[in-house]
Simulated scan of single mutants.
Amino acid sequence: MTHALFLDFDGTLVEIVDRPDAVAVKPGVPETLTRLSAALEGALAVVSGRPIAFLDAKLEPFTPDAAGLHGVERRLAGVLHPCRPEEHPGLRRGIEGLHEALDPVENVIIEDKGCSVAVHWRMAPAEEGRAKGLVEDLAERLGSDYRIQYGKMVAEILPALSGKGPIIAKFMEEAPYAGKTPVFIGDDLTDENGFETVNRLGGVAVRIGDGETVARYRLPSVSALAKTLHGWADLGRVDFDGVPEA
């Protein structure tokens, strides 16, 4: 059965860097993804916490199906269902408060995504307690319509119904994904939910790097994945021969 491939972005297609806006896609990756998408009859999507517009800018000229902001926004077959910040007035006010509290703190970064907000302390690990506390306080004030998603030295507030697992499941109901075996590749806590979903759907999960995981397979690095994707594009299919088990 043909595979449907879902790829995380940060830590998977690109290396994680100190400043989230400074990530860089290695030369040749967009071309590899273009060839692989064609081989999979278009059943390739990028599933990320980033906005879709950011993904497009980094992956150009490749413009795949995509889920951004952990599924808050999505694009399938060229039809975009965007994030609408005006539908989140409480969150918008809360983001203003985060800026007031954290802008004076050196090297703590607030990443405003419109319908979600992420606070990064990678460059200021001593500020983890303060940053997490402010995020948790805001999430509590916002109530059950929102949740916190933790990642590698980042905490993000986003709509409660979002998640990589649910959006992968939704894509799997639509052409060209329906009837295919899902494969999801990611690297972080935010991806474990997606791994659980593809496992439940009879698919295959691949973890990039170290850490406990429910994924069946593991690749050591972003570079190792790039090499694997290039090999799959040459083969014209997904093939797990030579991919180590987790």
Rank of each mutant, 00 (worst) to 15 (best):
G90F: 08
E174K: 09
G97F: 03
F240I: 03
A24W: 04
H70S: 09
V47D: 05
Y150G: 00
E86P: 03
A39I: 07
V238Q: 08
H88D: 06
V29L: 15
L229M: 03
F54I: 07
I208P: 07
L36N: 06
P166D: 01
A155T: 09
P51N: 08
I52R: 05
E192L: 06
A39E: 06
D188A: 09
E31F: 03
D145M: 11
V117I: 13
E86Y: 04
E100C: 04
V135H: 04
P244Y: 11
V47L: 06
P125H: 10
A226V: 08
N107H: 14
E73L: 09
R84Y: 02
P51M: 06
A39M: 05
A45C: 14
V25N: 13
R122W: 01
D103W: 13
W232L: 02
L33A: 04
G236M: 02
R50T: 03
T213N: 09
M123Q: 15
L5R: 01
P104D: 06
L36I: 02
I109F: 14
F62K: 01
M153R: 12
P64V: 05
A178D: 00
G42D: 11
K58A: 15
R19F: 12
K180I: 10
E245S: 12
V14Y: 02
A45F: 10
A126Q: 14
F195S: 08
D234P: 00
I208F: 05
K58S: 14
S48L: 10
I167Y: 10
R218I: 04
